[in-house]
Write a protein that binds this DNA or RNA. Structure first.
Lengths: 257, 257
DNA sequence: TTTTCAATGTGTATTTTAAACACAATGATA
DNA sequence: TATCATTGTGTTTAAAATACACATTGAAAA
């Protein structure tokens, strides 16, 4: 089976299995070297970058589709994943862009006419531990890697807007939920946590007040261990105590920011 | 054309015009007699109540579909309307419920097989001025009226959950945006505003502190008029100054709650 | 070995914000 | 005209956020 027929066959098979006009797109956030990053895919034989996304199977919950896409792209299960917005404008797909890509995939336009149709996309964002992820391209892409959020290229279709909305949502949530902790490894230092918050909020924070407030929430557990090896004084390691966090939520309010 | 053929014809025509497997559902909030209310429809010849909703046309933005549905149901344009969540579980539609309804509509099951298919619904909530709304049933319903949020019947499919998520979202937003003002008439008194907040937050608030804080936000304009006619001392009328609100947002933060 | 130094760990004073609280004024009703 | 439930306003107190300073650490340099 040559490449063209193979691609056609794959796509034709997909058509019957999926819900038409619907897709999921995932904004995968990671934190590395004090910068917020997102995972992007580069389409085969092109310089076009896009969010990891995919179709929803006929009998599959939309959330599950997002989980599936993410597992394929990151190798991770059980990610922190949140639906944040659905993008439903008819002009969000520009078929000229799309045709260029499909041509490179050696896929016949007629065979994929349904893919040209208008698509409504449910947007999810995931928070992952950077070091745990093994970026893996899919059938349609050559490359999968992290991009600094401040330096994204022009993305496929409206994916720049999707990222922007995801970032805005993440910042808002940060004000009343410790979402940021999902971006750090299990053990982390207070300065690391602070730098994450500073990056997300886009402003410097007072070291002493930050620590005071974080500890006041009473869901961080200080370990006896310290982060050794780094230059200068070794900071303590902390762990996010999810059980205690649940207890704090039960017992009333919680306010970050 | 008898009723059966007419309904079949209408539905067949709809099939070609709409995007399959996709719908919008609207939670229309109103405030009356110190209670939060939602607009519900009762299906023809049944006691089944449901949210106003509808299909999305092939070339229509999803947001526009929601606006269109709302205009038909409330007679209002330019409503405060927010997308809040997309409901995409395959088992959210129970075809047994659905069949009972369709039978009452005298619609042949075969003719509407696509309608039985799994449907992903984009949820919107609208905030409207109660007195301005003229509830109007659609082709499939006999009745359209307000229901107290605390006393809803068992609704169609997963509409109870949709309402619950909408209420939760509304309460959260109230903490950092004066959404509540969209539920009041143009001119309102401070006690009226306070009762709205108390209802939405589900707790009593101190009258003097409430007024102090609201006025501190600096987007309420006190008029010389007073609400006369009521028993006892006549309270001042206020107006929400949207221009000043925009200015306040520009100039930095804003925190309700 | 000792010194250096950039970063961490901790505490207190100050300001700002939210919460608690009390009395005078009003205007329809009795 | 007396009543009274409600409105209008200010002050006092507590809590939370902010500003700020010095001792400690541990690798690296001298």
């Amino acid at each position: 089976m040559d490449q063209v027929t193979s691609a056609q066959h794959w796509m034709a098979q997909q058509m019957g299995l999926i819900i038409p006009h619907l897709s999921v797109d995932c904004v995968v956030f990671g934190f590395h070297e004090n910068q917020l990053r997102v995972l992007l895919l580069r389409f085969k034989n092109t310089e076009v970058w896009a969010l990891p996304g995919g179709r929803v199977y006929r009998e599959e919950p939309v959330n599950t589709a997002a989980v599936r896409v993410l597992e394929q792209r990151t190798g991770l299960r059980g990610l922190y994943l949140q639906q944040f917005h659905t993008f439903g404008d008819p002009d969000r797909l520009h078929s000229s862009d799309f045709q260029a890509i499909l041509a490179q995939q050696n896929i016949r336009i007629e065979a994929s006419s349904l893919l040209f149709d208008r698509t409504i996309s449910v947007g999810y964002y995931a928070l992952v531990e950077f070091a745990q992820v093994s970026p893996a391209p899919d059938q349609l892409s050559d490359e999968c890697r992290w991009w600094d959020i401040r330096d994204l290229p022009k993305l496929f279709f409206d994916h720049n807007e999707i990222v922007a909305v995801a970032v805005r949502t993440l910042r808002q949530r940060l004000s009343y939920e410790p979402v940021g902790l999902n971006l750090l490894p299990e053990k982390f230092t207070m300065p690391e946590l602070q730098r994450l918050y500073e990056t997300l909020l886009g402003q410097p924070l007072d070291r002493r007040n930050f620590q005071k407030r974080m500890l006041a929430y009473d869901f961080l557990q200080r370990l006896d261990e310290r982060r050794t090896g780094g230059a200068f004084k070794a900071p303590y390691l902390y762990r996010f105590d999810r059980e205690r966090y649940a207890a704090v939520l039960q017992g009333g309010g919680l306010a970050f920011g």
